[in-house]
């Protein structure tokens, strides 16, 4: 049985803009991945527990309400606390470019802004995902 990339697509916080998250879930599945879509209103704890129970290879976070600087690093921190250091964390949404560096320093592997071709995101994941 071929191994499948398992990715959690999560909407942290109270933001309801899920067009991008749903669209990407579909695109990831089309690329052969198994996508766990969490739905809205996820706390960092919920996202990390989900990643843990699902043995996720990737956690994708989407935020359009300006809370990325709080939520994304928090998710990384909790993942590490659970020993999930090798999980790839990627983010997208309305994120000013000046925040990219800080997020990457906090351990977010990549940020994809508005207008990024979805093929670029899929390729990035396929190239950088862990072996298990």
């Amino acid at each position: 049985m071929a191994k499948k990339i398992k990715i959690i697509v999560a909407k942290p916080g109270l933001d309801g803009h899920d067009r991008g998250a749903k669209l990407l879930s579909r695109i990831f599945a089309e690329a052969g991945m198994e996508v766990v879509y969490t739905g809205l209103r996820q706390t960092p704890e919920m996202i990390v527990e989900t990643a843990l129970q699902e043995d996720a290879d990737v956690v994708g976070l989407s935020s359009l309400s300006g809370v990325h600087n709080y939520f994304f690093p928090k998710v990384v921190e909790l993942l590490r606390a659970k020993g999930l250091d090798d999980v790839l964390v990627v983010g997208g949404g309305i994120i000013p470019r000046e925040d990219y560096e800080g997020l990457q320093k906090a351990g977010v592997n990549a940020i994809f802004g508005p207008g990024t071709p979805t093929t670029e995101i899929v390729e990035y994941i396929q190239k950088n995902v862990r072996e298990r």
Binding site: K4, A29, E30, E34, V36, Y37
Partner: peptide
């Protein structure tokens, strides 16, 4: 495609 969207956790 062999992929899947697993959406049961939403509820």
């Amino acid at each position: 495609t062999g992929g899947a969207v697993l959406g049961d956790r939403v509820r």
